[in-house]
Amino acid sequence: GIDPFTGEAIAKFNFNGDTQVEMSFRKGERITLLRQVDENWYEGRIPGTSRQGIFPITYVDVIKRPL
């Protein structure tokens, strides 16, 4: 089901994660935001896939912030 505490964002740019914990994505992908890790990073996942990880806040347009 849908978790009411998650947020939502759209990727503004392609992001290629450097490490296992970073999640790569392509511009235009819809991302579920799980939490804000710190002032620069979100943790999120791509709905319908097993992809999950952290990524820079500046790479996405936030539609709804996670609670």
Rank of each mutant, 00 (worst) to 15 (best):
E29T: 05
I10R: 06
F55L: 06
R30D: 02
P4D: 15
P56F: 02
D61W: 15
R51W: 02
V21E: 14
Y59C: 12
N40Q: 12
R30A: 07
G7T: 10
D18V: 15
F5D: 12
D3S: 13
P4M: 14
A9W: 05
R65G: 15
A11P: 01
L34F: 06
I46A: 02
Y42F: 12
E22I: 05
A11E: 00
E8V: 13
D38C: 13
L33D: 04
V60K: 00
L33G: 04
A11V: 02
M23H: 01
G17V: 04
T6A: 13
G48F: 09
E22W: 06
D61R: 12
G48T: 05
P47S: 10
L34P: 00
K64V: 08
V60W: 01
F5N: 12
L33A: 03
F25N: 01
K27A: 13
F25S: 01
V62S: 03
Y42S: 03
R26W: 09
G1I: 13
G1T: 13
D61A: 10
V60P: 00
F5V: 10
R65A: 15
F15V: 02
R26K: 13
E29R: 02
F13T: 09
G17K: 04
Y42T: 03
I2K: 13
F25H: 02
K27H: 08
P47R: 09
K64G: 05
I46V: 10
E29D: 06
L33W: 02
K64D: 09
K64I: 07
R26Q: 13
L67M: 14
E22L: 08
F15T: 01
F15I: 01
E43F: 14
A9L: 05
I63D: 04
I10C: 07
F13H: 10
E43L: 14
D18G: 13
I63T: 07
G17S: 09
T58M: 13
I63G: 04
I10V: 12
I54M: 09
R45V: 09
I2N: 15
R26G: 07
I54G: 01
G28V: 01
A11S: 05
E43S: 07
D38G: 11
R35G: 07
G1Q: 12
P47M: 10
V21W: 14
T6D: 10
K12L: 12
S24V: 03
V62W: 06
F13N: 08
A9Y: 05
D18W: 11
N40S: 11
K27F: 06
R45N: 08
T19Y: 07
I63A: 05
G7M: 10
A11T: 03
P66G: 07
V37D: 02
R45T: 10
K27C: 08
D38W: 08
R26L: 13
S24P: 07
D38V: 05
K64Q: 08
R51K: 06
G44F: 01
G1M: 12
T19N: 12
I54L: 10
E8L: 15
V62P: 05
G28M: 03
N40W: 13
I31A: 00
G48M: 07
G7R: 09
S24C: 07
F13Q: 12
D61T: 14
P66I: 08
T49V: 03
Q36F: 07
Y59E: 03
T19F: 07
F25T: 01
N16S: 11
M23W: 04
W41D: 02
F25P: 01
I2Y: 13
F55R: 00
W41A: 04
G17A: 14
G44A: 02
T32W: 08
K12H: 04
L34G: 04
K27L: 07
